[in-house]
Amino acid sequence: MNELSLHNYILVGAVLFGIGVIGFLSRRNLIIIFLCTELMFQGIIVNVVAFGKYHGNLQGQAFALFLLVIAAVEAGLALALVVVLFRRKGTLDSESFKTLRE
């Protein structure tokens, strides 16, 4: 039906995932860090759905659906934690949460 190969989708998914990784690793605002994880989810969803299409079944879409659930759960909990952390320190800087060091 079309010339669009699986490869194109994988490429887009990988780029989205990579950009998410870059943002996750380089930004210091906790909210943006969590947004970047959502960005990675987007890349994965594209990937998974494309693979489902490639194999001609619905498993990819079902998997993406559950990914959506996980993303919602993660967002809810992460944002609750962000709120708590902001209350405790008055900042969202990831650098100031270093109690893991000692």
Binding site: L25, S26, L100, R101
Partner: peptide
Amino acid sequence: LQKGALQGYGLTMA
């Protein structure tokens, strides 16, 4: 290397 910042660990891991 052990700065306690999760992002640093994440960077190394990635």
